[in-house]
Structure formats: C-alpha cells, structure tokens
Write a protein that binds this DNA or RNA. Structure first.
Lengths: 187, 187
DNA sequence: TTCCCTTTTTGATTTATGTCAAAAGACGCC
DNA sequence: GGCGTCTTTTGACATAAATCAAAAAGGGAA
C-alpha cells in the first residue's frame, strides 16, 4: 500500500480523505505465475496497481500469441481499451511471476473521480504521462529495423531482458524469435 | 468555436462559467499551407483545436522526414510529449492545407484545470480516449506487413488517402514510398 | 544423475522490403 | 500551350527478416 501511495504522489498528491476512500475501495490480489488477470473477450472490470511481480499483455494473431507490453513493479495495469471503452478486451493479461496487486473496480473509480477533484486530477496527469510513454515507444520502433529496436530496448529497458523470456521479447519488438536470437549472437 | 463546443461535449460537458473562461483564453490562429505550428527543438507552449485544415507531425531520422501522425478537423493537436513534459519537441507540426485553429497556452490550461473541476474531468476523459486510440493504432501495425498496414488504413481511415500525399502516408505506415506505390499497383 | 519439457540457437531457403536510379505523370504558372 | 517543379511509378538489384526444420541448451522433478 505504501508503494501505491508513493506512486500516486509522483503524479499528484491526494488529500487524506481521498486517500482514505481509495484505500477502502482497494482489494488485495495475490496470484501465481501463469495465472490471468484478464482474459480476451471479457470486459475488464478493474484497474490494478502492481506491487510485486511482472505481467505481460498478449493477444492472438492468426493463432500466434503476440505479447505487446510488459508491466513491472509500481505501475497501473489494466486492459485500457476495455476498461475505458467498456467493450470486450482483445488482450489477455498474465502473470510472468508470482505477484501482488491492488484492485479497484470501474464503478469505484468513477465514484472517486466524481467525489474527489484531486483524484480526477491524478487520473488526468497519469493518463497524460501514459500517453507520452506510449508515444515514445511508438516512435522508437517506427521505421527502425530489428537490430535497432533491440538495441533501443537494451538501452531504455534493460530490466526487461533480465526478467522476460526471449520469445516474449521478440514478439514485443515485432520480430520472430529466430531473428532476435541471431541479433544477439552477433553482438 | 461552435465546433470546439461540440467536440468538448463529446468528452464531458462544461458549465457555462467554465466555457466562458475557456473562451476568453482562446486565440484564433489562421495559417497557410506549409506553415509550422511547432518546430523541433522548441518547447511547445500551446495546445490547439483544429477547426479547419489538416496537419502532419514529422521528425528527422537520419536526414529523412518521418511523418508519424496526421490531424484533421475537430481534434486537439500539440506536440504532446513537449507540451506535457515541458521539454523541447522532437517533432515539427506543419499545415498540409490552409487552416484555422484555436490556441490555448499551457499556463491558461493549467489555470483552467485548477479552477474548474469539469475542465479537469474533460481533460482526463480526453486523455483516456487519446491513449486508447494510440494503442489501437499501435496494435494495428504491430507485427503486420506493409500490405496489411495499408489495407488497415484504407479500411479505418480512408479520409487520409484523399487528403494526404502518398509520400507522407508511406512514412506514416513505416514503409518506403516505392513499396507503397507497388502495393497500390497490385490492388 | 537422468529424464522430460521448455526455451533458445543454428541452418537452409524463401519472401518482403529497402535502395538507387530513372521515367512518367500531375499541376500551377508565365 | 509549354515549361519547370513536385509527386508517383517502374525497374533492377541488394538486404533484412520470415519460415520451416532440427539440433542444442537449460531447468526442474523424481
């Protein structure tokens, strides 16, 4: 809980009363490696704060699992598309290690937004930052070839390489596992 | 101005007093085709509402101009990275047609956020939606080959094809102009 | 340790796309 | 109408990456 408190403060601090209401709405979730947070086809009902462990988001493309993002300690995770649009998720979220999360339902979050302006502000700022991070990732990969994308990853997110199987990383980079293996062999 | 009013209402309506303050802060900007809204290296001081015309965002990659987004009527535009992080922009924004925009400074926007909870809410919702749209675009292109990316574009954003030179579209899709030309020739 | 299962690497080949160069087409302007 | 400029297409070739197949390497459990 302390980690969440500190994380939220990075965006915008909350008043004690807001924090209290938020705390009351949160539910702790412990899951083992391999378990799912959300499965394709269901509307995502929660946003989670990831306190411990790491996750991957993946979807099915012609029978292949495409892992398109990873999450590590101290981030908010959900299937944003589904959670925000209230439509069925196209992606699955799975634990890559045993983990601990804090869950907040969609309804509780809307309620908090409605009743606490500082919560709304925190949400606004968080979404601004998440947008910018996604854009950065997009630009870093746009028009770059496989080797360059991999080098960008080793430079900008070396922690990923240490905790994630190579197959997932390849698909995250948009290349095949074989190509990634060959890139690594050469460098 | 009416278009902006309607656009904002799609996210979350504003109280009359909020709208009045917003209106007072807005400045109309008319620019000709080819002119720039923001240039690489400068901190972006405004967010704009595009009322008429269309724009492209592009950056320099090894001496080549990479167009990575387009904007058409009734959207907010800015160099989000620069505007939000207050760091120099890596991208240029240029008019592809003569256009009309409404400008709001960073300071005025922050002031509006601070003094009007409904403005904050509108901003939060807008950023949620923009995030989801960017993610959608990301997923549509991830792991897809050139032909498929082009077909996705014709399906999801046919208006782009009608108003944007092919060279820009190719770079938007992350492929060369020659490849795009050949794809079109075959279909 | 040995066996089994999963992950990663290596090899041979095919395919998609980039690169460089030049031709063809479109369009405003004098 | 013809000229110059900018955009798009076409051609020949080089290269990056995918695919299919199989071997090697790790890692846990009995």
């Amino acid at each position: 809980m302390k980690a969440l408190f500190e994380h939220i403060n990075q965006y915008s601090p909350l008043a004690d009363t807001t924090w209290k209401d938020l705390e009351a709405a949160l539910k702790k979730v412990d899951l083992a490696k391999g378990e799912f947070l959300i499965k394709e086809g269901k509307v995502c009902q929660h946003v989670y704060f990831l306190e411990k462990g790491c996750l991957r988001g993946f979807y099915d493309l012609d029978g292949k699992e495409i892992t398109h993002w990873f999450a590590f300690e101290n981030t908010f995770v959900t299937s944003f598309f589904s959670f925000i649009s209230r439509k069925p998720s196209f992606e699955n979220i799975q634990l890559m290690e045993d983990g601990t999360l804090w869950a907040l339902t969609y309804e509780d979050l809307q309620q908090l937004y409605l009743t606490h302006a500082d919560m709304e502000r925190m949400g606004r700022i968080m979404h601004e930052r998440y947008y910018v991070m996604l854009e950065e990732r997009f630009v870093r990969n746009h028009f770059k070839e496989a080797k360059e994308r991999y080098e960008n990853l080793t430079l900008n997110s070396p922690h990923i390489l240490q905790r994630v199987p190579l197959g997932y990383i390849a698909s995250y980079l948009g290349i095949t596992q074989e190509t990634l293996s060959r890139i690594r062999a050469k460098s």
